[in-house]
Amino acid sequence: MQATLFLEQLLNGLQFGFMLFLMAAGLTLIFGVMGLINLAHGSLYMIGAFACAAVAAATGSFWLGLMASLAAAAAAGALIEVVVIRRLYQRDHLDQVLATFALILILSEATRWLFGSLPLYLDIPPLLQGTVPLPGGSRYQLYRLALIGAGAAVAIGLYLLIARTRMGMRIRAGESDREMIAALGVDIRSLYTIVFALGAALAGFAGAMVGALQSVQIGMGEPVLILAFVVIVIGGIGSIRGALVGALLVGVVDTLGRFLLPALLSTFVSPSAAASTGAALASMLIYVVMALILAIRPQGLFPAGS
C-alpha cells in the first residue's frame, strides 16, 4: 500500500468528517438546548445549496452565493422555528418527528416549485480551483483543503462562542435547566430562535460548500442527515465536542473502509467479488462502529453536561 495514497485518503476522511460536523453541530445544539428532534435539518442544508447556486448563477460570484446561503438558511430556520417548531417543544418526540418529516416534504416540493426539478449548476470559485502537491509526489485538490480549513475554523468559532460569550453561557444554561433559566428572566423564546437559526446557518453553509463539489438537487440533504444522526449518537447527544470527534471518526472510518476493505478482501477472493463484498461491508462499517461505541458507552463518547 503506497503511503501517498493512504495520506490522500486520510485527508479525504478528514474533509468528509468536517462537513459532517457542520451538519451535526446544528443538530446536536438544537437537541441539546431545546430537546427537539429536527428531521428537517437536511432541508436547511438543501436550502443553503440552492441559495448559493442561484445567487452564484445570477451574480457570477461564489462568495456572494456563500453569504446568501448563510442568510437564506438562517432566515428559513428562524421562520420555521417561529411558525412550526415553537408549538412542538412541549410535545413528545414522536410528534416532533412527524411534524419535521412533514417539513421535509413541504420544503422539497417548495424548492421544486421555485427552481424546477433539474439539478442546478454550482462550481468551485476560481480562487480555490486546482490542486496542490502532497509529500510523496501525489497531488490534492485545493478546494478540499479549504473545506478542512473552513470546518476547523467553524469548530474553533463554535467553541469560543459557547465557552467564552454571554450568549454561549445562556445556551449552556438552557441545556442544563430550561425552567430555571426562564425563571431567571432570560428570554428563552428568542434564545431558542437564535439557536435554531444558528444551527440552520451551519447546515446551509455546509450545503453550499459541499454543493460546489457534489450536485445541487432536491433531496440532497437526507443522506447527510442520516449520517449526522449517527455522528451525534456516537458523540453524545447535545455535545459539540462529541459532534466534532464523532464526525471526524465517521468521516475517516467510512473513507478508509471504502478503500481498504476491498483491497484487504482481494487477497482472499477474486477482484470482482472482493470489490462488491468489500463495498457492501464498507457501507455497514460506520454502523458497526456506532453499535460498538454504544455497547461500551451507551451515552456516547462525550455525553452533554458531563
Binding site: L5, N12, S138, V210, A275
Partner: peptide, 24 residues
C-alpha cells in the same frame, strides 16, 4: 485489462476515495 473494479454505495455523493484510487 481491468486496472480496477470498484462498487460504490447507491446514492453516494462524495467520490474522493475512489478518485484517489484511480489516480494511484
Amino acid at each position: 485489462e481491468i486496472a480496477g473494479e470498484v462498487y460504490t454505495q447507491l446514492g453516494q455523493t462524495d467520490y474522493a476515495a475512489e478518485i484517489a484510487q484511480i489516480r494511484a
